[in-house]
C-alpha cells in the first residue's frame, strides 16, 4: 500500500507562464526508495517541496495515507543538502529536536535518540556541536534527526550533493542500511546519475520546461548491494554502466530538444 500518492500534480509559480511541474504522478510505498533524477530546473526540488507541504499544488493532489497534504507534518521529515541543523545544539540535541518539539516522553526520547545515533554511527560524537563536524557527519545528523522524529517518510533534498566523492559513496551505503532497518519510505532527489541508479528501487527521470517525468525505471542494483555484492563491483558492472550511459543520453537529448 502506498504511503504517498501524487496524482497529476502541477505547480505554477505566481508571475510565471511556464509551470514548474506538469502532470506529475507517482506513488511511494513504505519499502520503496524512490529517486527523482534530473538537471537543475527540472522541478525536482519543487516536487519535494510539495510532498513536504512547503509548496501548494496548482493542479492535482498529493495524498499521505489517503489524506491530502496541505502543510508540513511530522510524518514527512525533510533532510536538506546543508544549513538545516541547529548549531546552538549538540549532535544529541539536534537528533532529539523533533521528539522534543512533539512533546515525547523523555525516557522514550532518550532511547530512540541513542538507537538512532548508533544506527548512523554518531554515538561517539553525541556531545559535539554540529559545526565541529565534517560535511558527511553533518548529513548523518540530518538523517538521524529525520529518523528519530515520528516520520514515516524521509524526503531527501540532494543530501549528498555537497560531499566529496568518497564520503558520498559511504553515505549512499549508509542510507541503504538505514532505509532497510528503519522501515520508512524514502524519496530522494539528485542530479547524480550513479547515485540514482545505485540507490533507487524506483527511478523517475525528470526534464525541465515544464518540469515533468520523462522516463521511469526500476533498477535492481540496490537489491544486489543488499544481497551482499560489493559497491564497486556493482557500479563497474557493464549493466550499470550501460544504464548510466542510456540515462545520460536521455538527459542530453532532452537538453538538445530544449535548445532547438
Amino acid at each position: 500500500m502506498s504511503l504517498l500518492q501524487v496524482d497529476k500534480l502541477g505547480v505554477t509559480y505566481p508571475g510565471q507562464s511556464q509551470p514548474a511541474l506538469h502532470q506529475v504522478s507517482l506513488s511511494l510505498a513504505r519499502d520503496e526508495l524512490l529517486v527523482a533524477l534530473g538537471p537543475s530546473g527540472c522541478g525536482k526540488s519543487t516536487l519535494l517541496g510539495v510532498l513536504a507541504g512547503f509548496i501548494a499544488p496548482s493542479q492535482g493532489r498529493v495524498l499521505f495515507a489517503g489524506q491530502p497534504v496541505t502543510a508540513p507534518g511530522v510524518e514527512r521529515a525533510v533532510v536538506f543538502q546543508h544549513d538545516a541543523l541547529l548549531p546552538w545544539l549538540n549532535v544529541h540535541d539536534n537528533v532529539a529536536f523533533g521528539l522534543k518539539l512533539q512533546g515525547a516522553d523523555a525516557a522514550a526520547r532518550e532511547r530512540i535518540v541513542a538507537d538512532t545515533l548508533r544506527l548512523v554511527g554518531l554515538a561517539d560524537v553525541a556531545t559535539k556541536r554540529t559545526w565541529q563536524l565534517s560535511g558527511g557527519m553533518r548529513q548523518r545528523v540530518g538523517i538521524a534527526r529525520a529518523l528519530a522524529s515520528r516520520s514515516q517518510v524521509l524526503l531527501l533534498d540532494e543530501p549528498f550533493g555537497a560531499l566529496d566523492a568518497f564520503t558520498r559513496e559511504q553515505m549512499q551505503q549508509l542510507l541503504l542500511r538505514v532505509w532497510q532497518q528503519s522501515q520508512r519510505g524514502v524519496f530522494l532527489i539528485t542530479h547524480d546519475i550513479e547515485e540514482a541508479l545505485f540507490l533507487a528501487t524506483e527511478l523517475v527521470l525528470m526534464s525541465p520546461g515544464p518540469g515533468r517525468i520523462v522516463q521511469r525505471l526500476r533498477p535492481t542494483f540496490n537489491q544486489r548491494y543488499r544481497a551482499g555484492e560489493d559497491v564497486r563491483a556493482i557500479k563497474s558492472d557493464p549493466a550499470f554502466i550501460a544504464l548510466r550511459e542510456s540515462l545520460l543520453h536521455s538527459l542530453f537529448r532532452q537538453g538538445h530538444e530544449e535548445a532547438a
Partner: peptide, 9 residues
C-alpha cells in the same frame, strides 16, 4: 532551517 523544523512538528 525553518522548513526542517516545521517538518519535525
Amino acid at each position: 532551517r525553518q522548513q526542517a523544523a516545521l517538518s519535525l512538528g
